[in-house]
Design a binder for these strands. Structure first.
Lengths: 131, 131
DNA sequence: CTTGACCTTCCAGTTGATGGAAGCCCCACA
DNA sequence: TGTGGGGCTTCCATCAACTGGAAGGTCAAG
C-alpha cells in the first residue's frame, strides 16, 4: 500500500507519516521503485498514533504507548501510569486556561469597545500586579 | 538599569528580554560598556508584555497591543477586538482539552492498572474510531 | 590582582509538524 | 511514441517562543 492510501485510512497527512518514519515510529518496507510499502500492521500503528496524538499525548508518550501496545506481556499499570500523567497535564492546562479566560473575560466585559481611547484591558495589562 | 534588575522587576528572564529586543518589542539604550541600559518606560513595556504573555496572547498580539497601549489616540474597540479573538481561542482550546480529558479519564477509570496485559486504554487507542 | 557575578554575542536545540523545490515513476490517452 | 498529470521521493527551510550553553568582556570587592 502506498503512502497516499495509508494517509487516507489512518487520517494522517502523508507528510506526517514520513515524519513519523524519520523519527522511528514506523518502519514501512520499500518497493523496488523506492516507494514506501505499508503493511496492515503499519496502518494499525499509524491509526494508533493518530488516535493517541489526538488525545494530546506527546510523541515520546506515543512511542512508549506504541511499545506497550506491541508488547503482549505488558502490565496495564505501565499504560495507566503514562495516561494518568498525561491526564494530569491536561487538567493543569485546563486550569491555567480557565484562569486566563476568567481574567480576560472580565477585562473584555469592562471595555466599552468604542472609538474612545480609555480601555480597561490595556489598564489591566499595564497594572503592576496589584490585582 | 541593567538587564538583571529589569528581569527581576518585570518578571521575565533576562534571556527573554534580550529575545524581545531581537524581535523589536523593546529598544533599550546602550551604555558605553555595551550593556543594555533600560529606562522606566522600558520596564513598563516589559511588564506589560509579561502580563499579556501570561494571559496567553501571542507575540504578534502583544506587538499590536503594545502599539495600542502607546497610542494615546487609540480606539478601545481595537483593543477589545484583539482580546475577544484571543478569548475565543482560549475557549476553543479549553473545549478541546475538556474533550480529551473526558475520553482519557474514562479510559483511565476502566483500566485496572495491574500487572496483567489487558488494557482498555490501549484498546481504546487501537480501536478504529467506532466509538 | 584575582575571583566571581554579571554582562555581551552567537549558535544550536526544543516540539511536531508543514511548505516548497527539484526530480523520479507510472499510467492513460492520442 | 510522446506527453501530461498525479503521486512518489529527498532535502531544506520555517513556524512559536523561547532556552541552554559556549566564549569572552566588565566591574566591584577583597
Amino acid at each position: 500500500m502506498n503512502i497516499g492510501e495509508v494517509a487516507e485510512r489512518c487520517g494522517l497527512p502523508a507528510k506526517t507519516i514520513r515524519y513519523y518514519e524519520d523519527i522511528g515510529l514506523v518502519r514501512p518496507a520499500r518497493s523496488e521503485n523506492g516507494y514506501r510499502s505499508f503493511a496492515e500492521r503499519d496502518v494499525h500503528k499509524l491509526t494508533f498514533l493518530s488516535r493517541a496524538r489526538s488525545l494530546g499525548f506527546s510523541i515520546e508518550d506515543c512511542r512508549a504507548l506504541l511499545e506497550l501496545y506491541e508488547d503482549r506481556s505488558r502490565a496495564s499499570a505501565d499504560v495507566k501510569r503514562v495516561a494518568e500523567q498525561h491526564l494530569a497535564r491536561i487538567q493543569a492546562k485546563i486550569a491555567e486556561l480557565e484562569a486566563m479566560q476568567g481574567t480576560l473575560a472580565d477585562l473584555v466585559t469592562r471595555c466599552h469597545g468604542d472609538d474612545r481611547p480609555d480601555c480597561p484591558i490595556l489598564e489591566g495589562l499595564a497594572r503592576q500586579r496589584e490585582a
